[in-house]
Amino acid sequence: MSQLNTVWSPMNLPSDDNVPDNNYSFCIDLDQPWFMSKGAMIAYYGQMQFTALTQGLQGNMLQMVAQQFSAPLYLGDYVVAEGHGKLIIGDRGYDINAYDLEDGNLTIRAANLLAFQPNLSLNQSIVPGFLTLIGTGKFLASSNGPVMFVEPPVRVDPEALVGWSDCPSPSHHYDEAWVNGFIAAAGRRMGLNSGEERQFDFTGAGTVLVQSSEKVRDDSSILRTIQGHLPGMSVPSLHQINQQVTQQLGQQQG
C-alpha cells in the first residue's frame, strides 16, 4: 500500500513533520501551547482545546500572549492550541513547511504564517501585511508551490514574496522603462500593476523566501492596517482616500 492510500492513526503519523507524500498537511506533536492561525486545524487525536486570543485567556496563558504576541491588528486571526496529542494542520491545499529559527529575525507575509511556538515573539512589521518573528523556535508557513531561498541583492515580484530573514526591509522599485507605451501607461493609471513593473528591492546580507508562483492568498491584513491608520488622519486626507476608493470601485464594477 502506498503512502497516499495509508490509513493514518496516532501510531503511524509522523512527529513534527509533513504527513509522508503529502506536502499539504503537517502533523504537530502537541505537548506545549502553540499559536495557530484560525482555520488551520483539520484533525487531531488526543485532548486539545483552542482558545481565541481575544477571549477566554487567563493566568499564565494571558501573560504569555501579552509577552510574545505584539501584533494587535492580528489578535483576531490566531488561537492558542493546548493539550496533548497529534495535531494535523493544513491550508487549502497549499504547501506547508517547517522552519527553525535560532536567535533569528524573520519577517513573513501574515497570510502565510500558520503556527509558531510561543518561545518566538511576534511583532507587526513596518511593511503592511507582514509579521516579524524573533527568537529561537519552530514555525510553520504555507506557500503556493515550493519555496526558493535566494540571497540579496535581488528584486522580487511582490506577489511571489513569502518573507525575508536577517536582512533589511525591502524598498519599492518601479521599472518605468517597462511602462513605455500608451496601453501600459493607461493600465497603470487604472491601477493595474505587475511584477515586471513593481518589485521589492532587497540589498545587504540575508535570505529571501520566494514561492514558485505569483498567487497571493486573499487576506484582510492590508485592510486592517489601513483601518488602523484612519483615526489619526485629517479630514482632507480621509476625503481623498474616499475618492480613490470610489474610483477603484467604479472601475472594477464597470
Rank of each mutant, 00 (worst) to 15 (best):
A186M: 14
A186V: 08
G187L: 09
R189V: 06
R189T: 09
R189E: 14
M190D: 11
M190H: 10
M190A: 15
G191V: 02
L192V: 12
L192M: 13
N193E: 13
N193M: 14
N193V: 13
N193K: 08
N193D: 13
S194F: 03
S194A: 09
S194L: 02
S194I: 06
S194M: 04
G195E: 05
G195A: 05
G195R: 02
E196C: 05
E196V: 06
E196M: 14
E196W: 08
R198S: 10
R198F: 14
R198D: 10
R198Q: 12
R198L: 15
R198V: 15
R198P: 00
Q199E: 06
D201Y: 06
D201C: 07
F202E: 00
F202H: 02
F202G: 01
G204D: 05
G204I: 04
A205H: 12
A205F: 07
G206K: 05
T207L: 06
V208A: 06
V208E: 00
L209C: 08
L209N: 02
V210M: 01
V210C: 01
V210I: 11
Q211F: 00
Q211V: 03
S212K: 11
S212W: 02
S213L: 09
S213Y: 06
E214W: 03
E214A: 14
E214R: 14
E214T: 15
E214N: 15
K215F: 13
V216G: 00
V216Q: 08
R217M: 13
D218R: 11
D219Q: 03
S220R: 11
S220C: 11
S221F: 11
S221C: 10
I222T: 12
L223W: 08
L223T: 14
R224T: 09
R224H: 07
R224M: 09
R224N: 07
T225E: 12
I226Q: 03
Q227R: 13
Q227Y: 07
G228K: 05
G228P: 01
H229F: 11
L230T: 07
L230A: 06
L230K: 07
